[in-house]
């Protein structure tokens, strides 16, 4: 029985990675849930919006690096973020103007919006491939580790090491700041309240003199910011590949639905629920079991990593079966 080592191993292999991943999913799910709340459709292009935003960040990062500008010990990408967000927001506003607005005025069925978002997904996917290609790109040039495995062992004298990467801390800090700002915006400002009112009851919002187009524009800008941030943090933490951003759509949708589509608080909770489940289910627990005095031949892994999407899927199915409005009561079914 070696409780301390077991605890450190759980922290190192489960809690820390899942927290960072959860923060990324939460930001992604927030974007999906906001668009759902205001525009009332599931945006299939959100993953590719994240990819596009991240591609912009990478291009700008390369540009800044070329000019010799850095933000050491932070990654240069953070410096590139605001401009990339602005570019992505412009693209989203343009998309809304030429694609979605038409259907909004026609009050088209949600599924038509979903279909249109598939068209947008194709275009964004193509744009991303066009500007940056399909190869794997690493663009984290900040300090790699805040705590290194060797240092941790030296400090504590424990057998088990613990690593805390800079990107993980940045991810969680950036996500926390963004979420705090978003909630302040939604609950304290006139514009934010107008957004919530519109999400609650579109017709009554109109009767109250709220300009729907303005609400929609704000939503796209915020969604672009959230998507770019989520994509960049994910890319910094792991690496950038256009295709992974399509795949991450499923856990993001799962997170948004688990929390209740249209409910921002739920999206955050959903992000962490999905992330922790995914990491916990695909982590081989043998080492930790051994510390606790339970030797095993098997890996004690519930599912192999390749099936991590199955975890999101199962969570999604369970929620759809038992509580289709989500844990935090989102929009009705």
């Amino acid at each position: 029985m070696d409780l301390l080592n077991a605890l450190v191993a759980v922290l190192n292999f489960v809690v820390i990675p899942a927290t960072a991943y959860g923060a990324q999913l939460a930001l992604g799910a927030l974007g999906v849930t906001l668009i759902y709340g205001i525009l009332r459709f599931s945006n299939f292009a959100h993953g590719d919006t994240m990819a596009f935003g991240t591609a912009m960040v990478i291009l700008l990062t390369w540009g800044l690096q070329g000019l010799g500008i850095a933000l050491t010990p932070l990654p240069t990408a953070l410096l590139a973020l605001p401009v990339a967000i602005a570019l992505t927001a412009l693209l989203m506003l343009g998309t809304d103007r030429v694609v979605y607005r038409f259907y909004r005025r026609k009050r088209a069925a949600p599924i038509i919006f979903v279909m249109a978002s598939v068209g947008v997904m194709f275009i964004m996917n193509g744009l991303t491939r066009l500007v940056i290609g399909v190869d794997e790109i690493r663009f984290d040039d900040g300090a790699r580790f805040i705590i290194g495995v060797a240092d941790f062992r030296r400090w504590t004298g424990l057998e088990e090491g613990l690593a805390l990467r800079g990107t993980q801390v940045i991810t969680v800090a950036a996500a926390a700041l963004t979420v705090a700002w978003l909630f302040w915006f939604l609950n304290r400002t006139r514009s934010g309240k107008a957004m919530r009112a519109y999400s609650d009851n579109e017709d009554l919002a109109l009767l109250s003199g709220i300009d729907p187009e303005r609400v929609v524009r704000q939503t796209w800008i915020i969604a672009a910011a959230l998507a770019t941030l989520a994509g960049t943090l994910y890319g910094l933490d792991k690496s950038f590949r256009a295709f992974t951003y399509f795949q991450i759509l499923l856990p993001i949708f799962a997170a948004a639905i688990v929390g209740g589509l249209g409910n921002p608080l739920g999206a955050i909770a959903g992000g962490f629920i999905v992330a922790f489940s995914e990491v916990a289910v695909t982590y081989p627990w043998r080492k930790i079991a051994a510390y606790l005095g339970w030797e095993s031949d098997g890996l004690m892994q519930l599912l192999s990593t390749e099936y991590k999407f199955a975890v999101s899927f199962v969570i999604l199915i369970v929620v759809l079966l038992f509580r289709p409005t989500g844990l935090f009561r989102g929009k009705s079914v």
Binding site: R190, N201, A205, L207, I210
Partner: peptide, 29 residues
């Protein structure tokens, strides 16, 4: 509405997730 006509629909006439104070605030938008 801007000319001074206020309308209370029969159903769906509040913002359900917003507080009472916020509902009133939205009226004054």
């Amino acid at each position: 509405v801007r000319r001074g006509m206020g309308f209370v629909p029969q159903t769906h006439n509040v913002f359900p997730s917003m507080t009472v104070a916020e509902n009133l605030e939205m009226g004054a938008f």
